[in-house]
Design a protein around this nucleic acid. Structure first.
Length: 477
RNA sequence: UCCCCUUUAGCUCAGUUGGUUAGAGCGGCUGACUGUUAAUCAGUAGGUCCUUGGUUCAAGUCCAAGAAGGGGAGCCA
């Protein structure tokens, strides 16, 4: 029986078998207590062992980290702290964990330490909670789209195009690296490679998702994404999961509406289904906050923050309005920004996004209408021929959580944009053909799944919301 | 890739102007305790002071290079 079910039950007297891992064991002369967890919930079940019936020796190996099977009876707990507990009739240690060397102790560990113990950190309260919330969010994403009539599309992980225009790519090859086949001019002959051409891991499924949307109407991808950027921040991974909806007949406003609706749906789902875990994460955060200086502390605790996002409309402004606000802002006038905002056309830096979201509006902000020079070739050019129908959703503490746009559906304009930005049009013939045959206005966006996880769990480092993070110089486990 | 910080016991950290046998709390182990909640109390073991080189009579402490980790920036989701 799962511990989650036992703790909800009041069938005192029922016989149960529980299997799990020991968190702590406390012994006294006549009685021992084992706090047992099986991953089904943040809470442990308390197993009571009468040492007059079961010898202390037989449970000697039931130390922190050991796996055990308990046969016993559910009883109403006389102690405070829990309603139900299990009176053990038989304790079997399935797999001992030598307490001299088992690295997880019944105490707080730093997140940095646990990162080096990623194979065992699932056994901690924090990562158990994160893992359950992560699952709930994965499920909720599929449910959200399914209920709206979207189709899930599996886009390729190995791609032959290097024109997706989103960062450095990981090369995929079966060529022998110590003995590369060369052409006469000395360059590598990729015709001998597995696919007969240069291939990489995908940096986005968007282009393929567009192809599907232009027949299926509303589609989404949810798959692994790879970026070989040498990026060392708490918000970047070399391998992460991205959700990319793509919708025919949507304009930029429909796109924004969907993005806001989806984010709120997911947050609501977490509040309705993961309250135990969120409460634990919130408490954990609040304890961490105590060690911070007053000005660095979060203005709201986790659950309050999630509810706040649910209950308020996202602020929608144009890039031009954003630049005006920033130019007239106190930190800009006082020279507090590392990158001063002086003229229209500059890209917004992290500090500017943070100012807008955390100081000026104090809620999520969607910025649209960026200068076309700083955005991708596929974004629809506005009538002013100066800005594009891009939209970035900015979240407090995280920055850009969603980046999206209405796509350029006009063949001539798209081709011209590709030439301007030196995107090889010949290679992208298939993408262009969708604009040649039955093109329609359409839009889409990309949501970084781990960035969503950062927000929902309140964690500060993206390496702690994915089980096995891949970052520069680190592919352990 | 750039800037800043850190590296001392299993974990979290202290270690004075360079000076003798390097400390604490937690955890482990041993024992005590009539139901505990990260139990409590007593005792006990445990160290390549990140690595290499240098300065010095003497280096955990000063200098140089490197490694690992963290924070921030860029890039982005």
């Amino acid at each position: 029986m799962k511990i989650k079910e036992i703790l909800k039950s009041d069938k005192y007297g029922d016989q149960v078998v529980v299997k799990g891992w020991v968190r702590t064991k406390r012994t006294s002369k006549n009685v021992a207590f084992i706090a047992l967890n099986d991953g089904s919930t943040i809470h442990n079940v308390q197993v009571v062992v009468d040492l007059n019936e079961i010898s202390e020796e037989s449970i000697a190996e039931a130390t922190t980290g050991a796996s055990v099977a308990i046969e016993g009876i559910m009883i109403e707990s006389p102690g405070s702290g829990q309603n139900v507990e299990i009176s053990a009739k038989k304790v079997t240690v399935l797999g001992p964990a030598d307490p001299e060397v088992y690295p997880l102790q019944p105490k707080k560990h730093s997140l940095e330490f646990l990162r080096e113990k990623a194979h065992l950190r699932f056994r901690t309260n924090t990562f158990g909670a994160i893992t359950r919330v992560r699952h709930a969010m994965i499920y909720a994403i599929h449910k959200f789209f399914n209920d709206k009539g979207f189709y899930n599309i599996h886009t390729p992980i190995i791609t032959g195009s290097d024109a997706e225009g989103a960062g450095e790519m990981f090369r995929v090859t079966t060529l022998e690296l110590n003995n590369l086949p060369r052409k006469e001019d000395g360059s590598i002959n990729f015709e001998e490679d597995f696919f007969g051409k240069e291939t990489n891991l995908t940096v986005s499924g968007q282009l393929e998702a567009e192809l599907a949307a232009l027949a299926m109407g509303e589609v989404y991808t949810f798959g692994p994404t790879f970026r070989a950027e040498n990026s060392n921040t708490s918000r970047h991974l070399a391998e992460f999961w991205m959700i990319e909806p793509e919708m025919a007949f949507y304009d930029i406003h429909d796109d924004m509406d969907l993005a806001e609706e989806m984010l709120k749906y997911l947050i609501r789902y977490a509040l309705e289904n993961c309250m135990d875990d969120l409460q634990f994460l919130s408490k954990r955060l609040q304890e961490e906050e105590k060690n911070k200086k007053q000005e660095d502390r979060a203005p709201m605790e986790l659950i309050e923050k999630l509810k706040f996002v649910l209950e308020n409309d996202f602020e929608r402004i144009t890039y031009t309005e954003a630049i005006d606000i920033l130019r007239d802002s106190k930190p800009n006038k006082k020279g507090k920004f590392q990158f001063p905002v002086d003229k229209w056309g500059v890209d917004m830096q992290s500090e500017h996004e943070r100012y807008l979201v955390e100081k000026h509006f104090q809620k999520p902000v969607i910025v649209t209408g960026y200068p076309k020079e700083i955005k991708a070739f596929y974004m629809k050019v506005n009538e002013d021929n100066n800005t594009v129908r891009a939209m970035d959703v900015l979240f407090p503490g995280i920055g850009e959580i969603i980046g999206g746009s209405q796509r350029e559906e006009k063949y001539d304009v798209l081709l011209k944009r590709m030439e301007e930005m030196s995107v090889p049009a010949e290679e992208m013939w298939w993408y262009l053909e969708t604009r040649k045959f039955g093109t329609v206005p359409h839009a889409g966006f990309g949501l970084g799944f781990e960035r969503l996880m950062l927000f929902v769990t309140g964690m500060g480092n993206i390496r702690d919301v994915i089980p096995f993070p891949r970052t520069p110089q680190n592919a352990e486990f």
